[in-house]
Amino acid sequence: MIEWSERKAYWRNTKMQMLTSLLPFLLVLIVLPLYAEVLNDMRVFGIPLGYFLACHGLLIIAFVTLAVFVNRQDAIDHWHGAHEDI
């Protein structure tokens, strides 16, 4: 069980982790499609780069973001003793 004194620090770390997971990803999600037309002049695997990044890249970034979040948040839980005792 988490100590009362740890709660504030735990929640501060959790909040920071939430922001570092979501804000960069949100920024990419908004900005990248707007520049897809320009990037389409370059190609990877024969796929125009803008389309490739929007269709494959963003989905992969989404998965990596969430996978990193799960592990980082787990570490935060254990560091502050907030984890479940299974």
Binding site: M18, S21, L22, F25, L26, L29, P33, A54, C55, L58, L59, A62, T65, L66, F69, V70
Partner: peptide
């Protein structure tokens, strides 16, 4: 649409 639904899961998982 596809980007939105996928991102929605990321947000749900974190938030």
């Amino acid at each position: 649409l596809s980007l939105g639904v996928c991102t929605g899961f990321v947000f749900m998982g974190v938030l």
